[in-house]
Amino acid sequence: MRKRYDWESIFNDFASSGLAAKQFCLERNLNYHSFMNKKKRVEKNTNCNSFLPVVISVPSDKISFSFDGHMIEVDSSINDDALCRVINALKSS
């Protein structure tokens, strides 16, 4: 029988656990390879069309925003793909 998991909840728990993926899977009785495959698929399919709070305090050629406790400042001419890569890197850290 195939188990259905709430992967979003699992990945959130993993991110806050501070554990290595193998240890996390061992403690949660999850198959490590299935976990990693699903994690890669989710990260690959993550789209950057979700809304993020942005606060621009002074007109400039830089854009600053906070994401998951990280303060990010990028050049205002950054293209969408590059910004997506920055956001996805932060999500996976």
Score class of each variant (00 low, 15 high):
K22W: 10
F14R: 08
L30I: 07
F11G: 13
A15L: 13
L30D: 05
K3S: 10
R41C: 09
I72M: 04
F51G: 02
E43C: 09
G18E: 15
S34A: 14
S66N: 03
K91Y: 03
R2E: 14
S93F: 09
I56K: 03
S57D: 04
N79F: 11
S93P: 04
G18H: 13
F14S: 03
K38R: 15
C25Y: 04
H70V: 00
K62Y: 04
V54C: 06
N88V: 02
M1R: 15
N12C: 11
V54D: 05
M36Y: 13
K44H: 09
N49Y: 09
F51Q: 06
E73K: 01
L30V: 05
K91H: 06
D68Q: 06
E8Q: 12
R2N: 10
T46F: 06
K39V: 03
N45D: 15
V54R: 11
M71D: 02
A89W: 07
N12L: 12
N79R: 13
K38F: 11
F35R: 07
W7H: 09
E73D: 05
S64W: 01
D81W: 00
M36P: 03
S16Q: 10
E73I: 00
V74R: 05
K38I: 13
Y32W: 11
P53M: 06
A21I: 13
S34P: 05
N45H: 14
Y32E: 12
P53F: 02
E8W: 08
L19W: 15
D68R: 02
D68K: 02
K39E: 12
N31L: 04
N29L: 14
S16E: 08
Y32P: 08
N49W: 11
V86R: 04
Y32V: 09
K40H: 09
C84E: 09
R2V: 11
C48T: 09
I72K: 00
G69A: 02
N29F: 11
L83T: 00
S66Y: 00
L90Q: 12
P59D: 04
F67N: 01
N49Q: 14
M71G: 00
L19C: 15
D80H: 07
E27P: 03
Y32L: 12
D81K: 05
P53K: 05
K39F: 09
E27N: 15
V86F: 04
S9P: 03
K44L: 12
E73P: 00
R85A: 08
H33Q: 14
G18S: 12
L19K: 14
I87V: 14
I87S: 02
R2C: 12
D68E: 09
Y5P: 15
F24N: 08
F35C: 05
C25A: 07
G18R: 15
D68I: 01
P53S: 06
S17R: 14
L26H: 13
L26D: 13
M36C: 15
W7C: 10
F24P: 01
M1E: 09
I78W: 14
F67I: 01
G18Y: 09
D13Q: 12
S92A: 12
N31A: 07
V74M: 09
M1P: 15
N29I: 06
H70E: 04
N79S: 13
V54G: 01
V55E: 06
M71W: 01
E27W: 13
R4E: 13
Q23C: 13
S66Q: 02
H33E: 08
